[in-house]
Design a binder for these strands. Structure first.
Length: 163
DNA sequence: AAAGTGATCATG
DNA sequence: ATGATCACTTTG
């Protein structure tokens, strides 16, 4: 079954944990999610929105279940899903899927681009996540590639991997 | 180990 | 208008 608003409308740490093992669908293709990271609001110095609203981060403040896709290093489209309360900039980065290690590679394979930014993944669009009943064990680790964040935030175990 | 890539944001 | 920065990937 397709994950709806109630799934995303929870604290981003819970959503990030629960997304591991779910199945990402886009235009008839599907991949099982194996790795996620949580970015939790303006107090998280690793979160894009930690300095507040800008044209780019505006989407993070919108309703849970909205896609946030942005271009990283001029090359890679990275997919995030907005979580939590509207007005709180929280999101979960989809870091890897089965067979596609790396957040840039899975979007490249699926064909997800910034055209999908602001898409509603809980509606009738082409992008959604399915719970197929698979239950898997999840382990945590530190987040990757956030050397600009405070030491405290770098050390948080906010990356979730399928065991 | 390091370059390639371009949107984004803070400066002037 | 310009420049630094970057939640990455590939190549050597």
């Amino acid at each position: 079954m397709k994950l709806g608003y109630d799934f995303y409308h929870r604290p981003c740490l819970e959503v990030a944990h629960d997304l591991v093992g779910k199945v990402l669908h886009f235009r008839g293709q599907s991949l099982r999610i194996t790795e996620t990271e949580a970015y939790c609001g303006e107090n998280d110095t690793a979160c894009h929105a930690f300095k507040g609203r800008t044209p780019r981060t505006e989407v993070l403040y919108s309703r849970a279940g909205t896609a946030y896709v942005y271009l990283c290093y001029g090359v890679h489209n990275l997919l995030n899903l907005v979580t939590g309360e509207e007005g709180e900039p929280e999101a979960v980065l989809i870091r890897a899927c089965e067979g596609f290690p790396g957040p840039g590679r899975l979007t490249k394979y699926l064909g997800i681009t910034r055209a999908e930014n602001r898409a509603d993944v809980t509606g009738e669009g082409e992008l959604w996540v399915e719970d197929d009943g698979c239950i898997c064990q999840v382990v945590t680790d530190r987040r990757v590639g956030i050397g600009y964040a405070s030491q405290e935030d770098q050390d948080r175990p906010w990356r979730f991997l399928k065991k």
